[in-house]
């Protein structure tokens, strides 16, 4: 009973934990997506991983690597030997090699100013996890938004009404037209606006757009579909042992619950003898 009371007090106290405001804010929180591999029963959708691997090889690996994955291991998602050999050759490698981009770090640094990070662990290495990666891929200005920005930029001034119109697109404070103007100027300079990136300007230009790849299985390659697929692939590269872990986990937990109940029964019996 005492513990119950303690829990009650704790819950009450938690309700009073105030909302924290960070001094440095900026980015929009990426919304949560549906991921089939999440949760205790979640498993990877092999067809999605296969499609995602296609995007990874055809698009991402132009600059990025997946250094903890070998081309060969894509076999388990239904790629044939010949397809894998072709994928590897595209990067100047063999099927037994790690999935390293053909672009070397030095030339990458020369072109982009930074070395594109390895993507193997990306979905585990950012706050927001998969939702963040998906957010980045889909967080660039879409066509309509880009047109709106271009239209406002034509006369190089930002009126109050224009600022109001742009504020929800650029996620800036509409009451400060100078903020809107500053953001617009950077977009005009060719910087990559991404609403989900902290700081809003991202080194990588938008990598995907509708129809960027042609899916072998005939799935329509919309931006959302591709982003979802490649993020699923990256979730797999981040932890290929996930399914093994959950499967074993169920067996272990069923055993432990069963065994603990037995121990409790033994404890009750033995303590019944206590004087």
């Amino acid at each position: 009973m005492k513990i119950l009371k303690f829990v009650q007090v704790a819950i009450l106290a938690a309700a009073f934990i105030p909302q924290i405001t960070l001094a440095s804010s900026g980015a929009v929180h990426p919304p949560a997506q549906e991921w089939g591999f999440k949760g205790a029963f979640g498993k990877f959708d092999n067809a999605a991983v296969k499609r995602g691997a296609q995007i990874a090889v055809e698009v991402c690996m132009g600059c990025h690597s997946f250094k903890y994955i070998k081309f060969e291991s894509l076999k388990q998602f239904g790629y044939t030997e010949a397809q894998i050999v072709a994928m590897a050759e595209g990067q100047g490698r063999t099927k037994k090699d790690k999935m390293l981009s053909a672009m070397d770090a030095i030339s990458a640094k020369e072109s982009f100013g930074i070395i594109p990070p390895d993507l193997s662990l990306m979905t585990k290495a950012r706050k927001g996890y998969e939702n963040y990666v998906y957010g980045i891929l889909t967080g660039y200005l879409n066509e309509g938004e880009a047109e709106l920005v271009a239209k406002v930029m034509e006369d190089e001034t930002v009126s109050k009404s224009e600022a109001l119109e742009l504020a929800p697109v650029l996620h800036v404070d509409a009451t400060h037209p100078e903020h809107v103007k500053h953001t617009l100027e950077r977009i005009g300079n060719g910087d990559n606006f991404n609403k989900y990136f902290p700081g809003q300007f991202f080194a990588m230009p938008s990598p995907l757009s509708d129809g960027a790849v042609e899916y072998a299985d005939g799935t329509e390659s919309s931006l959302k579909q591709m982003s979802h697929d490649v993020t699923t692939f990256m979730a797999w590269t981040a932890e290929p042992t996930m399914v093994e872990r959950k499967t074993l986990g169920f067996k272990v937990l069923i055993y432990l619950v069963f065994f603990t109940i037995m121990l409790y029964a033994v404890k009750r019996r033995i303590w019944a003898k206590a004087h």
Partner: peptide, 10 residues
């Protein structure tokens, strides 16, 4: 029996 069984499971 209970104690033996629990021991075996353990």
């Amino acid at each position: 029996f209970l104690i033996l069984a629990t021991g075996a499971v353990g």
